[in-house]
Write a protein that binds this DNA or RNA. Structure first.
Ligand SMILES: [Mn+2]
Ligand SMILES: [Mn+2]
Ligand SMILES: [Zn+2]
Ligand SMILES: [Zn+2]
Lengths: 141, 141
DNA sequence: ATATGATTTAGAATTATTCTAAATATAGAA
DNA sequence: TTCTATATTTAGAATAATTCTAAATCATAT
């Protein structure tokens, strides 16, 4: 999504395209990393001509999640990360660096995963609406 | 693991079997839920003859994790839960109640999952050491 | 220009967790 | 047993992430 699309998207979702929101959205759309609110705050503070508050970063992230431009990711305790990749996908955590990398889903496995759940938990009558896999591992030398 | 095993386990791991630790461990071993530190604190405070502090709950949980009697689980933002099930397994989150249910792993899928990761990320040279699936869903009427 | 409502802001409040330093308990030695 | 060394517990302070509050500012429509 480029800057033009962003303005359009904001308009279509009744979001005022304020410099703060636009800069936060732009920052996220231009990184493959999964930054925290604090990291976004630091990066965006350096780009904006005016100052920005951390509250605005949290407020903006909330509305960007709400309109579906970004998603939240929980891979670690006590830390929320934000993700421009809004497709269904999974994450690989490099346990040496903390880096989080997107993993594309393998849809052929989905059915088997869900079937396995039903097999292993025959008493429970639940419907699985989605699932998320966190892979952990290390760089191979 | 019964009370006898617990004393033995503590002894073997050089953990003094204090009433606080024993009661916390017992509480966890006798529930299939995945309680938070606060929930454990409330439950254990009611069982112990002497008062207990929240700091002791956190300290005890830390050593119980360290010696491998329990595991930490991260399924929600900003909340750590504790799990007596120390085997490799996954979790189903009932999005209506927040209840967390164990899901046994399907080892036949592991290989395919890891293969898929390598296929979809051919440039990255990482070794996957483990992975965790969080299923989300609802009760079916 | 003015009003209205949305947005931003600083700072206070909240929640989960960790730290600190003193008090107490445990286990082993004497 | 008592003593002693060390481990554990504790209350409360500190920290980190996030949310809340209420005032200031901004944008848009009259
Ligand atoms: Mn927390
Ligand atoms: Mn947090
Ligand atoms: Zn992602
Ligand atoms: Zn579990």
């Amino acid at each position: 999504m480029n800057n033009f699309d962003l303005n359009k998207y904001f308009f279509e979702h009744n979001l005022k395209p304020t410099p703060q929101r636009l800069t936060i959205a732009e920052y996220l759309l231009n990184t493959t990393s999964h930054p925290t609110a604090e990291e976004i705050y630091q990066a965006v503070a350096n780009k904006l001509p005016m100052p920005i508050s951390l509250a605005t970063v949290y407020n903006s992230l909330e509305v960007l999640v709400k309109v579906g431009i970004i998603k939240e990711v929980f891979t670690e305790p006590n830390k929320v990360r934000y993700d421009k990749n809004i497709t269904n996908h999974h994450h690989f955590v490099n346990t040496q660096t903390g880096e989080i990398i997107d993993v594309e889903p393998y849809e052929l496995l989905s059915e088997q995963l869900v079937e396995n759940y039903l097999l292993k938990n025959p008493k429970q009558k639940f419907k699985i609406t989605n699932y998320h896999i966190t892979f952990y591992g290390e760089l191979v030398e």
